[in-house]
Design a protein around this nucleic acid. Structure first.
Lengths: 332, 332
DNA sequence: TCAAGCATTTATAACGTTATAACTGTTGTC
DNA sequence: GACAACAGTTATAACGTTATAAATGCTTGA
């Protein structure tokens, strides 16, 4: 490619096809006013020249950015959450006119900042983010602004587009598994309580242990955002106390690995002194030894749904119709 | 925010400050021709109005996109590679005028496609990608096109900006560890041989085992892109053969987990029948039990370096000065 | 005092696209 | 045969910015 290469514009297509620039623009936009023959001629000329519309010009003129913005939380909560989510989003967005841009807010920062910035400066046509809180200010802000968005996770606010994993069912299912193995003193390592998904998980845990009238330990001070060695330390201390749990529910692989380390280091035997059920998001954990009893969550599927939903919402679909709750899938 | 909200433009700043639009433009660009007093007045007016330049207009006029494009390989090679890389990139890019866009090519597709597309259509000012091959066509294309880019991984091509992990040193170090433990029949699970980093790793492995005059098994048919259960299957078969290795080197956590599963399922004892050294990219693996002997690679640091390097290259720095080789850091 | 020089500022045009309104030529109606 | 209606095409202007060239006013030197 010579450095003098100049991208063909509509003007070039117009000259090549013998029509006016306006006609080219309409034809390429499939305007029904344009005669079919004309449309074909122009399409051919455009293809021959390798014409691709200039995004900046389109964006300037129409105000539409053809961008969807992914706002990521600080790194490190779920192993490979971002990678899987991105993979799902990218797959759906590929082949459309949309691009994905990335923003990641620092741990200290206000999560509202990137959202506000993107909306105020029209940096995208729609937003994706995860880890919602019941009364999430980001969601409220976007609803008020009338800005298209989708979330991974529900809220208690007015209806919007979301995808979520049924963490209540996950916790219930996990309790059933442990109960079925004869476990009667269960404990869950809850994600940070401020997230909606954590509340659902806790609800599921509480109702399931209540139904069986067994002990359900729900420590307050655990936090998925906690570095894993903090989970290790806290759990280890708990396991050394009297009346330690004999069944443990982990909301993710990091918690599972941390827990197994604490169990192992205390000389407890998995499957004898204690059983563990964990949420699994990565296939490689099938190969973990000792085997971890898991329940699957598919983050990539979430990304796919969210991308599709957002594109639909941008094109006018009602957010209330764009909701999906993924059911837990048994690990094995 | 009312839906009638209109972003302030330079025109608004011009009216508010009493200067012409052109002057505003120059002042905000810190043009030295503008008087200091004027610059201050305009800066104040812009700040008061909350003026933010319109990216589309700037891009259309200047041809600069203020975008750096991250081209990701198909998902799933290294656990959380994308997430860590993105985190590093995003941290450096935050606060600059640049945005990050994402492209991920499908496993079947030509890796050149997204690169060509981005360059031909001026979709970014610079490119980041990983997993280079010695004679990487993407690198050659970009050098020929004079398009700024940085890679995670070296090539044998003309000098360009890169960041790499010293996989030769990694392999040597891993061999030394195993040798120190009395292991004399070593084996490495090599990443797909077409990547530069794999060749380096193999070189390091070969030279180190040759120095000690010990056996070095280098199976041809392993592949990091292989689903982990394929690694498991192949390794398991190998461990069942005569003269099985007593020291194993894993290029990543997925390979390590798969290997440990094969070892465990065959009833071999880690630390007795065989020792494993693995590359570690995620802190949580410190908590893996049994403990895995690891050597660290910091992907986030790679992302940070690459972002800084790319921004410098876009601003005219010579690519040859933007190279860094990360040294392996012992796990414990 | 006046031209030249200088420091600032500004008018104009252009980037590539699309929305709006205007134009052309044909058909159909009375 | 005049005119309305319509299908199809096009000229014009505008989105918000910056590069270029031009203009303004002030200072300086002879």
């Amino acid at each position: 490619m010579p450095s003098t290469y100049q991208k063909p514009t509509q003007k070039d297509v117009a000259e090549a096809s013998g029509f006016a620039v306006t006609t080219v623009s309409r034809a390429l936009a499939d305007d029904p006013l344009i005669a079919e023959k004309t449309r074909e001629k122009i399409a051919k000329a455009a293809a021959d020249l390798g014409y691709v519309p200039d995004r900046a010009a389109q964006r300037l003129r129409t105000g539409r950015t053809n961008v969807i913005a992914l706002v990521l939380d600080p790194h490190g909560e779920i192993l490979d959450f971002s990678g899987s989510m991105i993979s799902g989003l990218a797959e759906v967005v590929r082949g459309t006119k949309y691009h994905i841009t990335l923003t990641q807010h620092q741990s200290g920062e206000d999560p509202m900042d990137p959202i506000r910035h993107i909306v105020r400066n029209r940096l995208a046509d729609g937003l994706v983010f995860a880890r919602t809180e019941p009364d999430d200010p980001r969601v409220q802000f976007l609803i008020d602004a009338g800005f298209p968005f989708v979330t991974h996770g529900r809220t208690s606010l007015a209806s919007h587009a979301w995808y979520d994993y049924d963490n209540e069912a996950f916790a219930r299912m996990a309790v059933e598994r442990l109960y079925g193995k004869g476990r009667r003193r269960l404990m869950i390592i809850p994600p940070s309580a401020r997230y909606t998904f954590s509340k659902h998980m806790i609800t599921g845990f509480k109702t399931a242990v209540a139904r069986h009238r067994i002990a359900g330990d729900l420590p307050e001070d655990f936090d998925l955002n906690t570095p894993s060695n903090a989970i290790y330390t806290k759990l280890r201390k708990r396991l050394e106390q009297d009346n330690r749990p004999d069944g443990l529910i982990c909301p993710g692989e990091i918690a599972a690995i941390s827990s197994l380390a604490a169990i192992d280091d205390l000389g407890l035997r998995l499957g004898e002194d204690i059983d563990v059920v964990a949420k699994q998001t990565s296939p490689v954990f099938d190969l973990h030894r000792p085997r971890i009893d898991t329940i699957h969550e598919d983050i990539e599927a979430a990304g796919q749904f969210l991308a599709r939903a957002l594109l639909q919402e941008i094109n006018g679909a009602a957010p209330a119709t764009l909701q999906n709750l993924q059911q837990p899938r048994p690990g094995y």
